[in-house]
């Protein structure tokens, strides 16, 4: 492998890893608080992509306004899903909530198919943000820089929010002990909603950037990124935000380099994440940065 190709792969790995990291945070935050895999999180990517798509191409809005609207719509949707489909089941067996989450995910995907058809559409790439950069022999898209940059900014913002603000403190309290926090006059419902706002907005940003990077969108586009990002969150240690970032980067890099070094395994690319997941769950189920907790009896 030549130096250029290596750099090329490194850049691809970083931008894929950033996308994974961004989406993984949503999973890890919701899981941290509700102990639930929000299966619908994956489909929020798709919703954001389509809202942006229609904003730009049908309503001919400026790209930044379309993106903004997409983020707001996705956040509202995320919060509504929690209110309608998860909150009523808070005291129900865990299996019920999981089934509900799967139901919501399936509903969104198929509503997507009904409303816009299963055929992939090509996502517009506004010239303001997507252009070619040439340095010597290497040529790459501006996205290769923009995506990691935006990711880093958002990660810093989220980390600040969780660690330094009042709502962030409440989130950490609820995540540590749901029961106690609710007894201690923390408005748990508000905290849960805030978590969904943050997680869903990040998913929206992730979805939009994903569509810019891989500009083919279809109603099932969220499924695989979604599963992989959940895996990234588990790998990093579920509930831990730095863990989700780390997991996202490892997974993105791993996938890109697996295909680069062993092209004959490229058919197994999508299996790679699951294989990693299974190893993690077997040997360090708490993930890289997760804490060990013994279930109370």
């Amino acid at each position: 492998m030549t130096g250029e190709i290596f750099l090329q792969n490194l850049a691809n790995g970083i931008s894929l890893g950033s996308l994974y990291a961004l989406i993984a945070i949503g999973y890890t935050m919701v899981y941290g608080i509700l102990r639930l895999i929000n299966f619908a999180h994956a489909d929020l990517l798709m919703v954001a992509a389509y809202v942006a798509f229609y904003g730009i191409l049908v309503f001919t809005l400026p790209w930044w306004l379309s993106f903004l609207i997409a983020i707001v719509v996705t956040a509202i949707l995320g919060v509504s899903i929690e209110k309608v489909a998860y909150r009523p089941l808070r005291d129900a067996p865990r299996i019920s909530v999981l089934i509900s989450a799967i139901g919501v995910s399936f509903l969104l995907e198929n509503l997507g198919i009904v409303a816009i058809g299963a055929r992939p559409k090509s996502f517009p790439r506004p010239e303001d943000i997507v252009w070619n950069i040439n340095i010597g022999d290497i040529s790459f898209l501006s996205l290769t820089i923009i995506i990691p940059l935006i990711t880093v900014i958002l990660l810093v913002a989220v980390t600040y929010m969780v660690n330094k603000t009042k709502i962030g403190t409440a989130m950490r309290a609820v995540s540590r002990d749901f029961e106690t926090a609710s007894l201690m006059a923390v408005d748990v419902n508000k905290v849960v909603s805030a978590t969904f706002v943050v997680g869903s907005s990040l998913a929206a940003v992730g979805g939009i950037m994903w569509s810019l990077q891989y500009p083919q969108i279809d109603p099932l586009m969220g499924v695989f990124p979604g599963l992989k990002c959940f895996i990234a969150a588990v790998m990093g240690g579920i509930g831990s935000i730095p863990g989700a970032m780390l997991g996202g980067f490892i997974l993105g890099m791993g996938e890109v380099f697996l295909v680069a070094f062993m092209p004959e395994l490229s058919g197994y690319r999508d299996a790679f994440a699951f294989v990693i997941l299974i190893f993690i769950l077997l040997f360090k189920p708490t993930g890289i940065l997760g804490e060990n907790v013994v279930e109370k009896v």
Binding site: L36, I37, R94, L98, L227, F230, F274, L277, I278
Partner: peptide
């Protein structure tokens, strides 16, 4: 390997194995 896990983890691991 998978049945050492529970609930969500089992769900995602078995889903993964299916895939």
């Amino acid at each position: 390997p998978a049945l050492r896990l529970r609930d969500d983890y089992l769900a995602i691991a078995t889903l993964g194995f299916g895939e």
